[in-house]
Nucleic acid binder design. Structure first.
Lengths: 185, 185
DNA sequence: TTAGAAGTAGACCAACTGTTCTACTTTCCA
DNA sequence: TGGAAAGTAGAACAGTTGGTCTACTTCTAA
């Protein structure tokens, strides 16, 4: 019942944070977040404690969404090897998006020099999940060294994101895909 | 003459900026910079106009130093192929440094959402120089597709830096070196 | 119907930001 | 020796930051 016709302030804050933290960086002001979310100042502090709490919550949510994106990208094919190669095709499309600005998690890590900041726990968790996902796929295709290969694929993914974010016109996904094919053999 | 026994305020500001912008990010306060450089407030604004001017100048200087680092890393061998592979060995050592925090230029790009910020011109220039350096080496070894191979090597370098900055205990330089060997053939 | 929870709106605060300015000192060259 | 240039020290300023607080409204469930 009461299917909540429109999302509440908590949801709106998370959505606004996800968008603004990505496009502007973690330094966006609280005022901008409140305005974008159309939410009262008080609601932010009631729901998340402080700005850092919102940042961590946004990363937590984005992490789940991004992992789902990876799963979806893999689902483009059924054969294990084709699944992983297809991932790089999808990455190539992703980084070509006009407002692509690189990996949310690495950007967050760079924003907070203090290693005790709660955001780092979220970015670490994301990377571990991504690594586990890659290992799972590699094991499914019977790779001889899944751990090592996963690290190499991860390196190719990060490289693709950075090059995609900093250089226009390139197709880093294609370059990475060629190298990924080597890793898989 | 007057070999300037100790570096002047300009040099001290550049050195302090190079260190603090890297370790703390571009958001370090002017006060911290002045204190670290042991320089009067006024000197900063006389020499660099404003904080952004210092940021650009620091990047300009770091760019030259970092390119020299790449040249030096290549100089570990004479045979063209060994030169490029040796670069990844040096990168592997670099990212293992305890205070390594990733690529200065990518971090800077992420810090300034405004594409008109003067820092972006410096990071672009650095990347172009690095690309040219890679192309030069690939041509020297008679590679069939120097431009394409340079993009792949660049991707491997960026991936190495990101993984090195975010995951401890890994040896991304080794993983990248294996893949670089494939690129070179 | 009504009490209480949740939300809005916005004033307010202390701390900090980059920047400008004034006054004094050092350096160095003609 | 003298005087301009460059440097230091630090007060002051306006704008912004994250965060708290009060007063009012809306929703909702007993």
């Amino acid at each position: 019942m009461t299917p909540r016709t429109s999302p509440g302030p908590r949801e709106r804050l998370l959505a606004a944070g996800q968008q603004l933290f990505y496009s502007q960086g973690a330094s966006v002001g609280v005022d901008a977040l409140l305005k974008e979310a159309n939410v009262a100042r008080r609601s932010l502090y009631e729901h998340f404690g402080d700005k850092d709490g919102l940042i961590a919550a946004v990363l937590h949510r984005a992490s789940a969404e991004d992992l789902a994106w990876y799963e979806n990208a893999l689902a483009g094919a059924t054969e294990p090897r084709a699944r992983l190669l297809g991932l790089f095709d999808r990455l190539d499309e992703l980084v070509a998006t006009p407002d692509f600005r690189g990996c949310r998690y690495f950007a967050t890590d760079l924003s907070f020099a203090d290693p005790a900041h709660p955001a780092h726990a979220e970015t670490d968790a994301f990377r571990r999940s991504l690594h586990a996902l890659l290992v799972r796929e590699l094991e499914a295709m019977g790779h001889a060294h899944p751990e090592r290969a996963a690290e190499q694929l991860h390196l190719l993914i990060e490289g693709t994101l950075v090059v995609g974010a900093t250089q226009d016109g390139h197709h880093p996904g294609r370059a990475a895909r060629d190298l990924a094919a080597v890793v898989l053999d």
